[in-house]
Design a protein around this nucleic acid. Structure first.
Length: 587
RNA sequence: GCUCCAGUAGCUCAGAUGGAUAGAGCAAUUGCCUUCUAAGCAAUCGGUCACAGGUUCGAGUCCUGUCUGGGGCGCCA
């Protein structure tokens, strides 16, 4: 199956050349979904855009294009409206064959990339010295969804967690653990990350208050970097503990298990080479004892060029150095063609800066795409960045547990109201899936770049653009098969599709746009587009369901409607799975 | 001081390269369960797209300025 819009686009390009000559080869036909269903399914705005360039009236241009446009196999006769809109309505016969093709395709008509890329997605990249907190929620969910989508589309995806496992905060932590709890380092027993989080706070206090402790922390870093055995053992121990705890959280969040840790310590041996190369290229300047690359287009408060410090005056490296090493490695060794960083918007400057240096150093070329995907923040009800009551970052586990607890309470209330008996196992599973999915969907359905207000009641609501609403639409379809004793997999491959009712037609058209939506997400990395699509699909299904009896319908409508219902469920299931959300058969 | 992002219905938000009458959800009001379904469907209400200019056949979208909120701006990540 090929995307309908891609086919139409190609025909338009041919028609443009046929009507106006080779000069218009490659002109974007400006084909988009119709702004209003009454205009049809697609519209082209190209005639108006070309009016000035061709010096002709838009309507005349539209006429000329339509004259040369051969789409009789796909569309009803074209119409020209308003100031030169070309309106296209798909033929029902075409829709029927497409639906049949979709029915027999496990990929639901979504083609695999003709030119698969090697893609790196950098997430969720926690710091090992701290427990994961709200700040990791968006990178985790969005990174995971992007990875799944690109992978499904046939790309080779490498998920790399750029963990903070080196550097100053780590030295501080080790020093404090050594000082206050030396026995805890002798075995991993009795030391979980909750303890480490407490240690971290206490260590920070010590660090801020006591100069001699700061010195001890710095010494720990030096010893660690010098490869001191005991310090390294302590470091390793803490890393393992932290990773183990984080893995549990990944599981709870439903992240892909294929995330590889490749953090700061991994790049550590490569940092000197980065500096040497920048020096060799003549980009390196020493200023105030620090080694820097002066940036183009960035100025400091005095209006002078801003440096990107890559080696501190003390000789130490910083995150810019590590990120540059990662850039170099990902291009040179991993040979990635697309590297995606779903990271908070506050780091816009940082990424612009390291990309600039990467480009000037020749590591980033036109053959590789470094895609910084900025993320908006999660806000509290007060409109400010979400914080716990004590003013600290909210722990991720707490956030997730709370959602599950609330989902469980809602479910139990509902069961009581409906006098339903369910096993403890059923309740736990539904509560977990609904709770986690609600948070995840609420996050993903928001535009990636905009801030949003975190609100349990809204994300767990059973109506509206929420995970529970979508899950319920799926459950409804499964309800039909249970009630009617239908095995969807055995629905006749040769059974005809009937698109008589308005809602049947609308649903079918929407089902066929699944591939177009995924293409758009592939390009722009905005998972919210997929959420929007699934929400629309659920609404259109509910409308169809309201007007069209399925099980009681006469053949051939009955089987046709069963096929449409099944396709809806399969699309929801696949779509949600690409967002990292599982479905439930009953809820 | 410089810079980036945001400001759209009472609330939360969509509005991809400028296109036809600016859309959803929630909330509010009103209908619809003897029909697989009510966690649903239908309908009503709700807008000076922050403000002022400009560009053009056409601006929520692009440009300039103003106001408001948030982020960033040399050795933290």
């Amino acid at each position: 199956m090929r995307e309908t819009i891609a086919q139409l686009k190609e025909r338009f390009e041919q028609a443009l050349v046929a009507a106006f000559g080779e000069a218009l080869a490659g002109t974007d036909p400006m084909l988009v979904s119709a702004s209003n269903p009454k205009f049809g399914d697609y519209q082209s705005n190209v005639a108006m855009a070309l009016a000035k360039r061709l010096g002709e009236a838009p309507r005349a241009i539209a006429e000329a294009i339509v004259q040369k446009l051969d789409v009789t196999d796909l569309c009803e006769p074209l119409t020209i409206a308003g100031g030169g809109f070309i309106n296209l309505t798909l033929k029902t016969s075409y829709l029927k064959t497409q639906i049949k093709a979709m029915q027999s395709d496990a990929r639901l008509g979504v083609a695999s990339a003709s030119e698969p890329q090697r893609v790196i997605v950098d997430y969720p990249s926690p710091n090992i010295a701290k427990e994961m907190h709200v700040g990791h929620l968006r990178p985790s969910f969005i990174g995971d969804a992007i990875s799944r989508i690109l992978e499904f589309l046939g790309h080779e995806v490498l998920r790399l967690s750029h963990i903070g496992d080196w550097g100053t905060p780590f030295g501080m932590l080790i020093a404090y653990v050594q000082e206050a709890y030396p026995e805890a380092l002798k075995s991993s027993q009795g030391l979980d990350l909750g303890d480490l989080a407490t240690f971290y706070r206490a260590a920070k206090q010590r660090f801020d208050a006591d100069e001699s402790f700061q010195e001890a922390a710095r010494l720990s870093v030096v010893k660690l970097q010098a490869g001191d055995e005991e310090t390294s053992r302590a470091w390793k121990l803490v890393c393992d503990l932290s990773n183990r705890t984080n893995r549990k959280i990944f599981d709870l969040m439903g992240l892909s298990p294929f995330i590889q840790e490749r953090g700061e310590s991994f790049y550590n041996p490569l940092l000197a080479g980065v500096i040497a190369e920048l020096d060799r290229l003549g980009l390196l300047v020493e200023d105030d004892g620090a080694k820097c690359v002066f940036l183009e287009g960035f100025t400091n408060k005095e209006g002078k060029p801003l440096p990107l410090i890559v080696q501190k005056s003390g000789g130490g490296y910083n995150y810019a150095t590590t990120d540059l090493a990662a850039i170099r490695y990902r291009v040179g060794v991993d040979q990635a063609q697309r590297i995606i960083y779903p990271v908070g918007m506050e780091q816009t400057n940082h990424f612009a800066q390291i990309f600039q240096v990467g480009r000037r150093a020749g590591w980033i070329t036109d053959d590789v795409e470094f895609f910084y995907a900025p993320l908006g923040s999660i806000l509290g009800e007060d409109g400010k960045k979400l914080k716990s009551r004590s003013g600290e970052a909210v722990r991720l586990v707490d956030l997730l547990d709370e959602a599950i607890t609330r989902a469980r309470t809602d479910l139990k209330t509902r069961l009581q109201e409906e006098s339903r008996e369910e096993t403890e196992e059923f309740i736990e599973n539904v509560a977990k899936v609904v709770g986690i999915s609600a948070i995840k969907y609420a996050d993903l359905s928001q535009n990636r770049t905009s801030n949003y207000v975190f609100n349990y009641d809204k994300m767990l609501a059973l109506q509206g653009n929420t995970a529970p609403y979508m899950l319920y639409a799926y459950v409804r379809v499964q309800g039909i098969s249970r009630k009617g004793g239908i095995d969807f997999e055995k629905l006749g491959a040769d059974a005809p599709i009937v698109l008589q009712e308005e809602t049947e037609l609308t649903l079918a058209k929407h089902l066929l746009q699944f591939d177009e939506v995924l293409s758009s997400v592939e390009a722009d990395l905005l998972p919210s587009r997929l959420c929007e699509y699934l929400f629309e699909l659920s609404k259109k299904f509910n409308q169809f369901y309201d007007r069209c009896p399925v099980l009681q319908a006469e053949e051939p409508s009955r089987t046709s409607r069963l096929i449409l219902s099944d396709l809806t469920a399969r699309t929801i299931k696949l779509g949600l799975s690409l967002l990292g959300i599982p479905v439930l058969e009953r809820m």
